[in-house]
Amino acid sequence: MKVAVVQFRSKLGDFEANLEKTLDFCRRAKEEGAVLCVFPELNLTGYNVWDITFEVAVPLNSPKLSPLLEMSREIDLIVGLVEESPEHVFYNSALYISGGKIKHVHRKVYLPTYGMFDEGRFFGAGKRVKAFNSVLGKSSILICEDLWHMSTVYLSFIQGSGYIFALSASPGRGYREEGMFGNAEVWMNMGEFYARMTGSYFIYANRVGCEDGFVFSGKSFIASPYGELIAEASPFEEEILTAELNEGLIRSARANLPLLRDEKPEITLQNLRRVLDEE
Protein backbone atom coordinates (compact mmCIF):
# COMPACT_ATOMS: atom_id res chain seq x y z
CA MET A 1 0.00 0.00 0.00
CA LYS A 2 1.21 3.42 -0.85
CA VAL A 3 1.76 5.99 1.87
CA ALA A 4 2.38 9.72 1.37
CA VAL A 5 4.46 11.89 3.68
CA VAL A 6 3.95 15.60 3.27
CA GLN A 7 6.92 17.80 4.07
CA PHE A 8 4.82 20.80 5.00
CA ARG A 9 5.38 24.55 5.40
CA SER A 10 2.89 25.96 7.90
CA LYS A 11 1.66 29.51 8.23
CA LEU A 12 2.22 30.32 11.90
CA GLY A 13 -1.08 30.63 13.71
CA ASP A 14 -3.29 30.51 10.60
CA PHE A 15 -5.38 27.37 11.04
CA GLU A 16 -7.63 28.03 8.04
CA ALA A 17 -4.77 28.57 5.57
CA ASN A 18 -2.98 25.47 6.82
CA LEU A 19 -6.19 23.46 6.66
CA GLU A 20 -6.76 24.46 3.01
CA LYS A 21 -3.26 23.42 2.08
CA THR A 22 -3.56 20.18 4.05
CA LEU A 23 -6.68 19.29 2.07
CA ASP A 24 -4.90 20.12 -1.21
CA PHE A 25 -2.04 17.81 -0.32
CA CYS A 26 -4.51 15.05 0.59
CA ARG A 27 -6.10 15.35 -2.85
CA ARG A 28 -2.68 15.14 -4.49
CA ALA A 29 -1.71 12.15 -2.35
CA LYS A 30 -4.96 10.46 -3.33
CA GLU A 31 -4.23 11.13 -7.01
CA GLU A 32 -0.86 9.50 -6.55
CA GLY A 33 -2.61 6.42 -5.25
CA ALA A 34 -1.74 6.77 -1.57
CA VAL A 35 -4.09 5.30 1.05
CA LEU A 36 -2.68 7.42 3.88
CA CYS A 37 -1.31 10.95 3.99
CA VAL A 38 0.97 11.86 6.92
CA PHE A 39 1.68 15.45 8.01
CA PRO A 40 4.28 16.78 10.45
CA GLU A 41 3.87 17.91 14.05
CA LEU A 42 1.49 20.87 14.50
CA ASN A 43 1.16 21.27 10.74
CA LEU A 44 -2.26 22.91 11.12
CA THR A 45 -0.96 25.64 13.44
CA GLY A 46 2.78 26.06 12.95
CA TYR A 47 5.30 24.98 15.54
CA ASN A 48 6.33 27.94 17.72
CA VAL A 49 2.77 28.80 18.64
CA TRP A 50 3.58 30.04 22.16
CA ASP A 51 0.67 32.29 23.22
CA ILE A 52 -1.15 31.56 19.95
CA THR A 53 -1.74 28.13 21.52
CA PHE A 54 -4.91 29.40 23.16
CA GLU A 55 -6.17 30.97 19.94
CA VAL A 56 -5.68 28.03 17.58
CA ALA A 57 -6.62 25.18 19.93
CA VAL A 58 -9.58 23.07 18.82
CA PRO A 59 -11.70 20.58 20.76
CA LEU A 60 -11.96 17.26 18.95
CA ASN A 61 -15.68 17.80 18.35
CA SER A 62 -15.08 21.17 16.70
CA PRO A 63 -16.80 21.81 13.36
CA LYS A 64 -13.45 23.26 12.25
CA LEU A 65 -12.29 19.68 11.82
CA SER A 66 -15.22 18.70 9.58
CA PRO A 67 -13.34 19.24 6.28
CA LEU A 68 -10.67 16.80 7.51
CA LEU A 69 -13.30 14.24 8.53
CA GLU A 70 -14.89 14.60 5.10
CA MET A 71 -11.53 14.20 3.40
CA SER A 72 -10.89 11.04 5.40
CA ARG A 73 -13.65 9.30 3.45
CA GLU A 74 -11.31 9.60 0.47
CA ILE A 75 -7.93 9.04 2.09
CA ASP A 76 -6.78 8.37 5.66
CA LEU A 77 -4.72 11.11 7.24
CA ILE A 78 -2.52 11.96 10.18
CA VAL A 79 -2.39 15.64 11.11
CA GLY A 80 -0.86 17.68 13.91
CA LEU A 81 -2.71 20.39 15.86
CA VAL A 82 -3.31 21.94 19.27
CA GLU A 83 -6.03 19.90 20.94
CA GLU A 84 -8.15 21.47 23.69
CA SER A 85 -9.51 18.84 26.05
CA PRO A 86 -12.97 19.11 27.64
CA GLU A 87 -11.10 20.17 30.81
CA HIS A 88 -9.34 22.95 28.83
CA VAL A 89 -5.92 21.46 28.89
CA PHE A 90 -4.00 22.12 25.66
CA TYR A 91 -2.10 19.28 24.03
CA ASN A 92 0.36 19.00 21.18
CA SER A 93 -1.59 16.21 19.47
CA ALA A 94 -1.69 14.13 16.33
CA LEU A 95 -4.94 12.68 14.98
CA TYR A 96 -5.47 9.62 12.86
CA ILE A 97 -8.60 10.27 10.82
CA SER A 98 -10.27 7.64 8.70
CA GLY A 99 -13.72 6.99 7.23
CA GLY A 100 -15.13 10.25 8.58
CA LYS A 101 -13.99 9.67 12.17
CA ILE A 102 -11.08 10.45 14.46
CA LYS A 103 -9.86 6.93 15.15
CA HIS A 104 -6.85 7.67 17.31
CA VAL A 105 -5.28 10.57 19.19
CA HIS A 106 -1.71 10.74 20.35
CA ARG A 107 -0.88 13.50 22.81
CA LYS A 108 2.83 14.30 22.85
CA VAL A 109 4.26 12.84 26.03
CA TYR A 110 7.66 14.50 26.18
CA LEU A 111 7.46 18.27 25.81
CA PRO A 112 10.93 19.74 25.31
CA THR A 113 11.41 22.74 27.56
CA TYR A 114 15.08 23.60 27.31
CA GLY A 115 17.37 25.56 25.01
CA MET A 116 15.25 26.90 22.16
CA PHE A 117 12.20 24.83 23.17
CA ASP A 118 9.41 26.03 25.44
CA GLU A 119 6.60 23.52 24.99
CA GLY A 120 6.09 22.74 28.67
CA ARG A 121 5.09 26.36 29.23
CA PHE A 122 2.06 26.03 26.96
CA PHE A 123 1.09 22.37 26.60
CA GLY A 124 -0.06 19.63 28.88
CA ALA A 125 1.82 16.33 28.55
CA GLY A 126 0.17 13.18 27.20
CA LYS A 127 0.36 10.04 29.29
CA ARG A 128 -0.18 7.22 26.83
CA VAL A 129 1.59 5.48 24.00
CA LYS A 130 -1.04 3.30 22.46
CA ALA A 131 -0.96 1.24 19.32
CA PHE A 132 -3.95 1.41 16.98
CA ASN A 133 -5.01 -0.09 13.70
CA SER A 134 -4.32 2.15 10.73
CA VAL A 135 -5.18 1.29 7.15
CA LEU A 136 -1.68 -0.21 6.94
CA GLY A 137 -1.88 -2.36 10.07
CA LYS A 138 -0.88 -2.07 13.74
CA SER A 139 0.62 1.40 14.14
CA SER A 140 1.86 3.97 16.61
CA ILE A 141 2.17 7.73 16.39
CA LEU A 142 4.94 9.49 18.26
CA ILE A 143 5.76 13.18 18.14
CA CYS A 144 9.28 14.56 17.90
CA GLU A 145 10.78 14.65 21.42
CA ASP A 146 8.86 11.45 22.24
CA LEU A 147 11.28 9.63 19.98
CA TRP A 148 14.34 10.90 21.81
CA HIS A 149 13.09 8.80 24.70
CA MET A 150 13.67 5.15 23.81
CA SER A 151 10.85 4.12 26.12
CA THR A 152 8.18 5.42 23.73
CA VAL A 153 9.60 3.41 20.87
CA TYR A 154 9.86 0.38 23.13
CA LEU A 155 6.19 0.78 24.05
CA SER A 156 5.25 0.92 20.37
CA PHE A 157 7.35 -2.15 19.70
CA ILE A 158 6.01 -4.22 22.57
CA GLN A 159 2.44 -3.58 21.41
CA GLY A 160 3.41 -5.02 18.05
CA SER A 161 3.29 -1.91 15.91
CA GLY A 162 4.68 -2.48 12.45
CA TYR A 163 4.41 1.17 11.46
CA ILE A 164 5.86 3.96 13.56
CA PHE A 165 4.75 7.41 12.47
CA ALA A 166 7.26 9.97 13.67
CA LEU A 167 5.91 13.50 13.33
CA SER A 168 8.26 16.36 13.93
CA ALA A 169 8.94 20.06 13.51
CA SER A 170 12.66 19.96 14.01
CA PRO A 171 14.49 23.30 13.79
CA GLY A 172 17.78 22.88 11.94
CA ARG A 173 21.03 23.22 13.84
CA GLY A 174 24.55 21.89 13.45
CA TYR A 175 26.85 22.55 10.50
CA ARG A 176 29.17 19.59 10.86
CA GLU A 177 27.38 17.30 8.37
CA GLU A 178 27.06 17.26 4.60
CA GLY A 179 23.93 18.21 2.68
CA MET A 180 21.78 18.52 5.77
CA PHE A 181 21.66 19.92 9.29
CA GLY A 182 23.18 17.90 12.11
CA ASN A 183 19.79 17.18 13.64
CA ALA A 184 18.46 15.85 10.31
CA GLU A 185 21.28 13.33 10.24
CA VAL A 186 20.51 12.28 13.81
CA TRP A 187 16.89 11.72 12.80
CA MET A 188 17.99 9.49 9.95
CA ASN A 189 20.30 7.51 12.18
CA MET A 190 17.49 7.16 14.69
CA GLY A 191 14.98 6.10 12.04
CA GLU A 192 17.25 3.47 10.56
CA PHE A 193 18.15 2.16 13.99
CA TYR A 194 14.62 2.09 15.40
CA ALA A 195 13.24 0.54 12.21
CA ARG A 196 15.77 -2.27 12.37
CA MET A 197 15.47 -2.87 16.11
CA THR A 198 11.67 -2.99 16.01
CA GLY A 199 11.29 -4.61 12.59
CA SER A 200 8.93 -1.79 11.69
CA TYR A 201 8.50 0.82 9.04
CA PHE A 202 9.63 4.17 10.40
CA ILE A 203 7.78 7.02 8.68
CA TYR A 204 9.29 10.41 9.48
CA ALA A 205 7.36 13.56 8.53
CA ASN A 206 9.22 16.80 9.20
CA ARG A 207 8.53 20.48 8.58
CA VAL A 208 10.23 22.89 6.18
CA GLY A 209 10.14 26.68 6.14
CA CYS A 210 11.21 29.33 8.66
CA GLU A 211 9.68 30.71 11.83
CA ASP A 212 11.62 33.76 13.06
CA GLY A 213 14.89 32.35 11.81
CA PHE A 214 14.28 28.77 12.94
CA VAL A 215 14.83 26.90 9.67
CA PHE A 216 13.08 23.54 9.85
CA SER A 217 15.37 20.80 8.66
CA GLY A 218 13.17 18.83 6.23
CA LYS A 219 14.71 15.52 5.08
CA SER A 220 11.56 13.53 5.80
CA PHE A 221 12.09 9.86 5.08
CA ILE A 222 10.77 6.33 5.28
CA ALA A 223 12.92 3.50 6.60
CA SER A 224 12.06 -0.15 5.98
CA PRO A 225 11.88 -2.84 8.69
CA TYR A 226 15.42 -3.77 7.62
CA GLY A 227 16.56 -0.26 8.58
CA GLU A 228 17.09 0.89 5.01
CA LEU A 229 16.00 4.27 3.69
CA ILE A 230 13.45 3.72 0.94
CA ALA A 231 12.40 7.32 0.39
CA GLU A 232 14.02 10.60 1.32
CA ALA A 233 12.94 14.22 0.85
CA SER A 234 14.97 17.39 0.29
CA PRO A 235 16.24 19.65 3.07
CA PHE A 236 14.19 22.74 2.15
CA GLU A 237 11.30 22.10 -0.24
CA GLU A 238 7.67 21.54 0.51
CA GLU A 239 6.94 18.20 -1.16
CA ILE A 240 5.13 14.88 -1.10
CA LEU A 241 7.16 11.79 -0.54
CA THR A 242 5.54 8.48 -1.39
CA ALA A 243 6.55 4.87 -0.97
CA GLU A 244 4.99 1.49 -1.35
CA LEU A 245 4.94 -0.27 2.02
CA ASN A 246 4.63 -4.00 2.23
CA GLU A 247 3.46 -5.95 5.29
CA GLY A 248 5.45 -8.89 3.92
CA LEU A 249 8.67 -7.04 4.57
CA ILE A 250 7.80 -6.70 8.27
CA ARG A 251 7.17 -10.44 8.34
CA SER A 252 10.47 -11.08 6.59
CA ALA A 253 12.44 -8.82 8.94
CA ARG A 254 10.84 -10.32 12.05
CA ALA A 255 11.36 -13.87 10.81
CA ASN A 256 15.04 -13.17 10.31
CA LEU A 257 15.46 -11.19 13.51
CA PRO A 258 12.80 -12.35 16.02
CA LEU A 259 13.37 -9.62 18.58
CA LEU A 260 9.68 -9.08 19.21
CA ARG A 261 9.07 -12.81 19.74
CA ASP A 262 11.94 -13.01 22.23
CA GLU A 263 11.26 -9.78 24.05
CA LYS A 264 10.55 -10.19 27.76
CA PRO A 265 8.51 -7.20 28.87
CA GLU A 266 7.88 -8.78 32.28
CA ILE A 267 11.62 -8.66 32.98
CA THR A 268 11.69 -5.03 31.95
CA LEU A 269 8.74 -4.39 34.21
CA GLN A 270 10.22 -6.27 37.19
CA ASN A 271 13.45 -4.40 36.83
CA LEU A 272 11.71 -1.07 36.45
CA ARG A 273 9.77 -1.77 39.65
CA ARG A 274 12.94 -2.74 41.46
CA VAL A 275 14.79 0.36 40.26
CA LEU A 276 11.91 2.64 41.21
CA ASP A 277 11.50 0.93 44.61
CA GLU A 278 15.19 1.28 45.38
CA GLU A 279 15.11 5.00 44.74
Binding site: Y175, R176, G209, G213
Partner: peptide, 23 residues
Protein backbone atom coordinates in the same frame (compact mmCIF):
# COMPACT_ATOMS: atom_id res chain seq x y z
CA UNK B 1 38.60 24.04 16.87
CA UNK B 2 36.57 21.43 14.99
CA UNK B 3 33.34 22.99 16.15
CA UNK B 4 34.19 26.29 14.51
CA UNK B 5 34.69 24.71 11.11
CA UNK B 6 31.74 24.64 8.69
CA UNK B 7 31.89 21.32 6.93
CA UNK B 8 29.48 21.84 4.03
CA UNK B 9 29.59 25.50 3.12
CA UNK B 10 27.35 24.99 0.07
CA UNK B 11 24.65 23.67 2.38
CA UNK B 12 24.96 26.54 4.84
CA UNK B 13 24.84 28.99 1.93
CA UNK B 14 21.52 27.39 0.95
CA UNK B 15 20.21 27.65 4.51
CA UNK B 16 21.05 31.34 4.67
CA UNK B 17 19.62 32.17 1.24
CA UNK B 18 16.43 30.21 1.99
CA UNK B 19 16.13 32.14 5.23
CA UNK B 20 16.51 35.50 3.44
CA UNK B 21 14.06 34.62 0.68
CA UNK B 22 11.39 33.24 2.96
CA UNK B 23 11.56 35.85 5.72
Amino acid sequence: ERELHIKDRAFIEKVLTHFIREE
